[in-house]
Nucleic acid binder design. Sequence first.
DNA 1: CAGAATCCTTAAAGATACTG
DNA 2: CAGTATCTTTAAGGATTCTG
Lengths: 109, 109
Amino acid sequence: MAKRPGAYHCGTEAAMDIIDGKWKVGILWALGEGVRRFGELRRMLPGVTEKVLASHLRELEQDGIVRREALPTVPPHVEYSLTPLGVSLNDALAPLARWGEQHILSAVR
Amino acid sequence: MAKRPGAYHCGTEAAMDIIDGKWKVGILWALGEGVRRFGELRRMLPGVTEKVLASHLRELEQDGIVRREALPTVPPHVEYSLTPLGVSLNDALAPLARWGEQHILSAVR
DNA sequence: CAGAATCCTTAAAGATACTG
DNA sequence: CAGTATCTTTAAGGATTCTG
C-alpha cells in the first residue's frame, strides 16, 4: 500500500510500494485485458487465496488503481477494472516486462 | 533473488523478483551515479543495516546486476558498480520512476 | 458469489556484537 | 573497512470457517 506522498525519496520507491504484494502485478495484468469479476480473477491467478485477493484489490482500490463496482443483484456480483491511473501504471510497467522477458525469461529458452 | 528462468509467467514478475528487497532500487539508483564503496552505499541509504546491505549486494551480484571488486589493500577496499545488465535494468525502471513522481510524489506538493 | 473473521506459518528485515 | 554470526521481531501471506 502507498503511504503518504512525503514518505518517499524517489518515484520508483513510490511506484514499488503500490505494486508491492505477491499478486499485484498479476492483477494489473489480468485487468489490463478488461473488466473482471472476483471469481474470474481468482481463476486467472492460480494459487491466490480469497483473502489475499480481496485485500490486494482493496489496497489497489484505495490507491486509485482499480475501480470496484458492486452490482445490486442476488447473488452478489462485483466487477473490477482499471482506472485511467491504473492504465498508466500498466503502461509504465511495460518496459520492465520487456526487460524481464529479454534478459531473464529467454535465458534458457 | 531471481529463481530459475522457468519459474515465471511474465517478464514483470521476473524483473520484480530481482528488485525485490527493501533497498534494492535504492542500491540501483546509488550505483547509477558511478562506482561506490560499501561504506559509501551505507551512508547513501540511511537506515539500512550492514547485514541487509551485504545480503542485497550479494543477491544483485548473483543476478548479474552488480559487479563486486575487492582490492587487495589493508584496510580492505571493495568497489561496487553496475554491470551492463544492471544499467539496462535501471533504464527499464525509468518510466516507472517518472510515473511515481508524476502521480504519487507530486500529489501534495 | 463475494467476501469477512480468525488463526497460523515463515521468510525478510532489524539489532547487536564480533572479526580478518 | 567490510563484512559475518546470532538472535529477535514483524508483517505478508496461507488455511480454514462462516455469512449477507
